[in-house]
């Protein structure tokens, strides 16, 4: 067998293996999407079938007729608020950790990462007490504060590594050019860490978007529920409305997919290539 032929067979084998892997990973998503268009009897049919006989829209109609849009808006507000606060505080904090020297700087960096190691359940009681004390129980602020607390340590570390990758000399060159510290930060450094800011934003958004624990504890009324808490209503110990549950799951996943598709192009890792000669 010629070398060329062996290489071709290997390439094909690898491609097939990769596709099989992708199929295995995405099967639950495909099943979710297919089930959301099945009637209740079709969903529980034995033997199960992947594709529905006819496109059944009853699950979506039932879902959208309920409180779905209210939960959706609540989730959007909480996730966006978390993203904004995490990015603003995270970039300023990471810049400070990488550019200024002050006593306890290293210890602060380590302590921040250490807090991320605590499971969120452990933070529940202290957060609850703080939220009650601040009188923000059952408000968006309670959820934003809770999600932010959990997203901030990792975001700071993520951003810190991006800030470290921006050469100090580039900032110094801007200062010699007449730029103030603020101008340096906004005009020189921020554009270079934009992929990091976007990654952090996505991380914070997904964390807040998927949060069930904090949202179920810190909201007490139906109109403050977020999507994960609201959707959970369709499945309990007595009954599970699988069709609506699958339709809701699809509706929750779509915004995240759209967000990823929109921002993927901006996640260029080599944005600051060419700043300095290696």
């Amino acid at each position: 067998m010629s070398r060329m032929r062996r290489r071709l067979i290997r390439t094909w084998a690898l491609t097939v293996a990769a596709w099989l892997f992708v199929l295995a990973v995405s099967f639950p998503l495909i099943w979710m999407l297919a089930s959301s268009f099945k009637s209740p009897t079709e969903i529980t049919a034995v033997p199960p079938r992947l594709l529905p006989d006819a496109l059944y829209l009853g699950n979506y109609e039932a879902l959208f007729a309920g409180d779905f849009w209210r939960w959706f808006m609540n989730s959007i507000i909480v996730a966006s608020g978390t993203v904004v606060i995490v990015i603003v505080l995270g970039t300023l904090g990471a810049y400070s950790l990488t550019r200024f020297s002050y006593p306890g700087q290293k210890a602060t960096s380590t302590a921040i990462l250490f807090t991320y190691l605590f499971p969120s359940v452990l933070m529940l009681v202290p957060l609850f007490l703080i939220i009650v004390e601040l009188r923000i129980m059952n408000t968006y602020w309670a959820l934003i504060l809770a999600d932010m607390t959990f997203a901030m340590p990792f975001s700071l570390w993520l951003l810190r590594s991006y800030f470290l990758s921006v050469p100090l000399q580039v900032e110094e060159a801007a200062m010699v050019d007449g730029a103030s510290r603020f101008a340096c930060f906004f005009q020189i450094v921020l554009p270079q860490v934009m992929p990091g800011i976007i990654s952090t934003g996505i991380f914070a958004f997904i964390l807040a978007w998927d949060d069930y624990l904090f949202a179920s504890v810190f909201t007490t009324t139906a109109e403050m529920k977020t999507l994960p808490v609201g959707i959970a209503r369709y499945a309990n110990e007595l009954n599970a409305e699988w069709g609506i549950l699958m339709a809701a799951s699809v509706s929750v996943t779509v915004p995240v997919l759209v967000l990823f598709a929109f921002l993927q192009r901006r996640l260029l890792p080599d944005l600051n290539a060419g700043a300095v000669k290696a």
Partner: peptide, 10 residues
């Protein structure tokens, strides 16, 4: 002029 040029990459 810096040793590594320090150009604004963006």
């Amino acid at each position: 002029v810096f040793q590594n040029y320090a150009l604004y990459p963006h």
